[in-house]
Amino acid sequence: MTVDNADDSSRDERAGTSSGPTLPILNQPSSRRTALKAAGAALGLAAFGKAVSPLWSIPENVSVDEFLQQHYKELTDDEKRRVFERLEAETQRQYGKDVTISDPPPIPGVRFGYAINLSKCNGNGACMEACNQENNHHRGVDQSYIRVLEMTKGSMDMEHGTTSYDHSVPQEDKFYMPVQCQQCENPPCVTACPVEATWREDDGIVVVDYNWCIGCRYCEAACPYHARRFNWEPPEIPADEVNPDQGYLSNRIRPQGTMEKCHFCLHRTREGRLPACLEACPTGARLFGDLNDPDSDINWVLQNKRVFVLKEELGTQPNFFYFFD
């Protein structure tokens, strides 16, 4: 800093203030300083426009309708239909595939539960692959809502687990624990969301309105189960691999910059079908059903097996259970 100059200018200003503050630009519209300032401001604005020019690509990708779209819960049935049509058209344009976006509501009286038999799971990862395909995940990073931990027998401490094992399974001294969204009764992610873009539905499934999420990732920090995924870039999926059976709150192709998570394949399960990961499991370790039905398989497991939930001490009350034979 050149101190003297700064002082000079302040003094100049002060000299003019003896009879009240001055209006330098108004009073001297033709002064060189004012002209230079105006030029500087214009140059600055131009430079700013140039600097943020990559933003001009946004209007190409975000239509006015999308920008103004209201929260899912505020949309009328008619508005929803128009939104789904718009999304179907966008998917056709961007991914070259005709898809159908549906929005099955929760089945009244049903509360979904999932259980995994850890004595059966051998960590082969077929569930992750099925999830990737069913849910239109980014192929570039082989995204999936499931992570399978290889754990050391004799310890439930995940500190002794790893997801990056790459050998034939199962290993003698290991057991395998898939982790995905636990669909908590008391979900910390829903509490965290500042804009109510994620909420728990009546059947216990925690969903995300991908068109309302602002992408702050607070839910991802809040989730104790590493269940949430962020779309760091637009998902790449070849047209012939796009699953055309899509749900608005589930497996439709998610936009860049938003959060997503396991939704128990609600576009399938709310139609009565089993989740994709369960059908894919070659070991038959997975079990899905209605917790409100006393005769359901899942309730038989809860009553007859020794069942635990992950991180029970956090009070999240998962609807996802683990058991051993």
């Binding site: 100059n5 100049d12 003019g16 001055t22 209006l23 108004l26 009073n27 060189r32 230079l36």
Partner: peptide, 15 residues
Amino acid sequence: MPSMTAQKQTSLASP
């Protein structure tokens, strides 16, 4: 820019 410093600002506006 130094020349700008030399520019004297005078007040013509009434309070």
